[in-house]
Each structure stands twice: as C-alpha cells, then as structure tokens.
C-alpha cells in the first residue's frame, strides 16, 4: 500500500460518521439501476438546458403567424404552436425553466425548512414549539390560495409562483429535520460538543445538519419533481410562467384547447414534464431505499 492510500484510509477513519455514511450512499447509488436511470434523465435535462441555444433549431419566442398549428414535419420535428413557434425549440428552452423551478423551490424551501426544523428540534422548549406551530399553520394553509394571492398581489410571474411554492414546502422539511434533530441531539458526539461549550449555531451546523442530510436529500429529490408539477398547475390557471416564456406547464395549458385537433401542442411538453418528473421521482425513490438503514447493509 502506498503512503497516500494509508493517509486516505486514515482520513476515512477520522471522518465524522455522517461523512462515511454519505460516501457509502454514493457507492450504493452506483449499484442501483433505478437510481442510475433517474440520474441519467436528470443529467440529460441539465445538458439540454445548458446547450439549449445549440440544440434548438429555432427561437423559442419568435412568432411566425403563417406557420401556426402545423403538424410535426421535417422542418418542425414536433410541429408548431398557435403562434407558429417551433415546439421542439420551446421544449428544449423549457428545460432551463424547469431547472430554475426545481432548484429555486428546493433550495429555498429546503434551506429555510431545515434551519427552522433543526433549530426547533435542537432547542426544543418554547421556541421550538412556536416554530413548529407556525409550520403547522403553513401546512394547514391551502397552498393554492397562497400562490394565487401572491400572484394577484405581485402580478403573476414565474418568480412569484416559485416563491409561493417554496414557502409552502418549508414545513415539510422543517418537520422532517425536526424529528431527526430531536434524536440527534441526544447522540454522544453532540453531547460531547455541547459539554465543550460549542455554540448552538456551531452544533447545528456541524452535527445536526449533516445528520439530516441524507433524508433531506431524498425529500429534495422528490420535491424537485413535485415543484415542476406544481408550477405547471399554477401556469395552467394562469398564475405561473407568463407568455412568451416556454414553460412546459403553460404550454400544456395553452395546448389543451387544441387537444382534439392539434394534439402535438400539449402532448410534447406534457411528455417532457412526465419524463423529468419520473426521473426525479425514481431517483428519490431509489435513494430512499438506499438510505433506509434497515435495507442498506
């Protein structure tokens, strides 16, 4: 064994338990075909989004009234929509919006939710229960009302819709992290840190968060698929992405009016939503199996 390897293995031994756990998880993901399938789909989505300008044959927003509603053909592989825009190009550019949706919602919802949940779980007491009661309130609040009211107040736009969706996702993460934090705070290494007078934020950051990471990851993966679907629903009632943005949900919503005569308008963006949502979901599903302590060893 070369010295470097010895050092590495020494490093591994010194790692905190959650880091080891995390590396083990990644190894399991590699071996799980379902998880890999999900990863492939999501990677494709990211690649399509990044290289959209190169992949798209036409502009996603330029209208061409003479070509409206033309069926799939050699020049427009997926046909054109009611404004004569190329659907393939719009679906490709739509990948960018979908990623924006997934990332924004999960980052905001997950970060805020985790912080609140970890704080509440670690502190317990009055502060903790107030936080969790507020979370209950948000959870009980009909998500769509919130989205609609925000949209009506600030004007419907994708960003406002995302803000609203992220907001209603917060309690989900808070509850999850809260539960885990309650048990983590009794762990020896946390007690040790506390006895060494480590500050509360330090403990939460270094011990509580990492311990919750894997389950937050699962929720976040599933949450990305859900966020895309929710944004699509909001667009459907006119509160999400605004024209001419090529958001898939908005495209399906517009296209449904033409469904009986011009099936391609709603079908292709619908399929795009389906594939991506399935991708996130099977990845999340597989991750859950992998991370399940009873099933992993």
């Amino acid at each position: 064994m070369c010295p470097g390897a010895a050092e590495r293995s020494y490093g591994l031994r010194e790692m905190s338990p959650w880091m080891k756990d995390f590396l083990f998880t990644i190894r399991l993901v590699y071996r799980n075909p379902l998880a890999m399938a999900g990863i492939v789909i999501i990677t494709c989505l990211v690649l399509v989004a990044v290289f959209a300008p190169l992949l798209a044959p036409y502009s996603p927003i330029d209208i061409s009234l003479d070509e409206r509603l033309s069926p799939p053909s050699a020049s427009h592989l997926l046909g054109t929509d009611e404004m004569g825009r190329d659907i393939l190009s719009r679906v490709i550019y739509g990948a960018r919006i979908s990623i924006r949706i997934a990332v924004t919602v999960v980052t905001i919802g997950g970060a805020v939710g985790s912080i609140l949940g970890a704080t509440a779980g670690y502190l317990r007491g009055r502060m903790g229960s107030i936080i969790m009661r507020v979370m209950d309130m948000i959870l009980a609040f009909p998500a769509l009302v919130l989205c609609m009211v925000l949209a009506a107040a600030l004007g419907p736009s994708l960003n406002n819709a995302l803000l609203a969706i992220a907001f209603v996702q917060i309690p989900k993460y808070a509850r999850l992290v809260h539960g885990q934090a309650l048990s983590l705070r009794e762990k020896h290494y946390v007690l040790a840190a506390r006895s060494m007078a480590a500050s509360t934020p330090w403990i939460i950051w270094h011990h509580i968060f990492p311990g919750c990471l894997s389950s937050v990851l699962v929720l976040a993966t599933m949450g990305m698929g859900e966020a895309i679907l929710l944004a699509a629903s909001l667009s459907f009632i006119g509160l999400g992405a605004q024209p001419p943005e090529p958001e898939w949900g908005a495209m399906v919503a517009m296209g449904r009016q033409y469904l009986m005569d011009h099936w391609w308008l709603a079908t292709f963006p619908g399929l795009a939503i389906l594939v991506v949502a399935v991708g996130f979901n099977i990845l999340g599903d597989a991750l859950r199996d992998i991370l399940d302590p009873r099933l992993r060893r």
Binding site: I63, M83, A151, A152, A153, G155, P156, Q242, P243, P244
Partner: peptide
C-alpha cells in the same frame, strides 16, 4: 389577449420598441 400581446410584442420589436407583457388578475 395573450396571443394579441405576443403579436404586438413582435410588431413593436420591428420598430425597435421593446414591449414587456404584464398579466394581472382582472380585478387588479
């Protein structure tokens, strides 16, 4: 309206005017 706005957007672009659509609830 949504379609008309998009056409206006394209038309105005031809004369160098940038048009930004703003959709609100009817009441607003």
């Amino acid at each position: 309206w949504a379609q008309e706005v998009m056409i206006l957007q394209a038309n105005f672009r031809d004369i160098g005017v940038k048009l930004e659509p703003e959709m609100y609830a009817y009441a607003t």
